[in-house]
Computed example of a mutant assay.
Amino acid sequence: MQTIGNVWLWGGFAVVVVVALLADLVLMRHGGAHKVTFKEALYWSLGWVGLALLFNAGLWWYLNETAGAAMASKVGLEFLTGYLVEKSLAVDNIFVFLMLMSYFAVPEEQRQRVLVIGVLGAIVLRGLLIFAGAALLAKFHWLLYLFGAFLLVTGIKMWFAAGKEPDLEANPALRWMRGHLRLSPTYHGDALSVKQGGVRWYTPLFVVLVLICVTDVIFAVDSIPAIFAITADPFIVLTSNVFAVLGLRAMFFLLAGMADRFHLLPYGLAVVLVFIGTKMLLIDVFKIPVLWSLAGVVVILGVTIVLSLMRPAKPGASA
């Protein structure tokens, strides 16, 4: 399992992530539970993107000094492409989160807590899956074909599912909770469970949190193979993934009122997955350069966003 990561790079990355998370938890929750405004979410979203770009610049500088300009440029481009792919696929997470919050009528003031726990869970889960995936790919090259086929099929399924409202009532996790747990019909502040008459009841906030964690698992399985089409280096895969996930909470509040304006974006994400899956299937026949991958993803998403703005969703249509 080859990687550019050494003790200094891993240590520096860990420090940046811990400091960023602490700053996020302290500053974004300043003043207690509150409704996050569009302006606040915009500033935080720009801050997270800026931090990712700053980390990439620092990584380029370090590698330029220690391994040469060619290696620094190669790794910098891989990080940027991986970050863009994971950031764009994270938008699909946001659409599902919005649907969950709306379905369970989660109070605006309590949405932050659920998203914080969801983001932390996503970071841990992706770390485990990435190292497992990198170790397997180092031993079994043919898994790239399996990943490619999986992404191809997922992209096609996503295309045909775009615009359709997911059936939450058929969700296995929700059905299991309803069959095995006592679920309270009302919220109790930010409590996940309460005791009433000596009996433990789980609040709707707990249900939403579980479903968001399940969603994290599903989307991690979808998105992590996508970045292995860019690079197999676990350091680049993990860092680009984590920086994409770190801005998930701010992006949720940023897109909360704009989902309908980007109603065609799920189709663009489906095309991105098909494109990346095809790239993985062709890896031993024709290796598509990373720069082409970056350009392809940018063009696909750009065209989708422009078309969404030019052709607004019909009133009453599902995003």
Results as ranks from 00 to 15, higher is better:
124 V>C: 08
182 R>P: 08
112 Q>N: 14
202 Y>L: 08
205 L>N: 08
103 Y>M: 13
166 P>C: 11
140 F>R: 01
197 G>N: 05
107 P>C: 11
169 E>V: 04
180 H>L: 12
125 L>G: 07
207 V>T: 10
176 W>P: 13
134 A>L: 02
149 A>L: 15
198 G>A: 01
201 W>C: 03
165 E>Y: 07
144 L>S: 11
130 I>H: 02
115 L>P: 06
152 L>I: 04
97 F>V: 07
173 A>G: 09
172 P>K: 03
204 P>Y: 05
160 F>N: 07
100 L>A: 05
178 R>T: 06
164 K>M: 05
154 T>W: 01
102 S>G: 09
206 F>H: 00
168 L>K: 00
155 G>W: 01
111 R>E: 15
202 Y>C: 11
146 L>M: 09
153 V>H: 07
154 T>C: 11
107 P>V: 02
165 E>F: 00
152 L>V: 08
106 V>I: 09
163 G>C: 07
177 M>A: 12
105 A>Y: 00
133 G>K: 04
104 F>C: 09
171 N>C: 04
137 L>V: 15
139 K>A: 12
164 K>N: 13
152 L>Q: 03
130 I>L: 03
116 V>R: 00
193 S>G: 13
188 H>V: 14
205 L>I: 02
150 F>D: 11
175 R>A: 13
171 N>G: 07
200 R>S: 13
96 V>R: 00
195 K>D: 15
186 T>K: 15
140 F>E: 10
200 R>I: 11
99 M>H: 12
163 G>K: 01
193 S>Y: 14
148 G>S: 02
107 P>L: 04
190 D>N: 15
96 V>H: 01
151 L>T: 06
168 L>R: 00
97 F>N: 04
116 V>L: 11
173 A>T: 10
195 K>A: 14
141 H>Q: 12
111 R>A: 14
125 L>S: 06
119 V>P: 00
115 L>F: 08
203 T>H: 04
207 V>Q: 04
160 F>A: 14
116 V>E: 09
117 I>Q: 04
100 L>P: 04
144 L>K: 08
155 G>K: 09
202 Y>S: 07
107 P>Q: 07
103 Y>N: 09
98 L>N: 08
144 L>D: 07
131 F>E: 14
99 M>Q: 09
110 Q>I: 01
135 A>F: 12
141 H>L: 11
180 H>D: 10
161 A>Q: 12
163 G>Y: 00
159 W>F: 15
185 P>S: 04
184 S>T: 06
171 N>A: 08
125 L>T: 05
139 K>W: 08
195 K>V: 15
122 A>L: 06
153 V>W: 12
135 A>G: 03
109 E>K: 14
98 L>D: 05
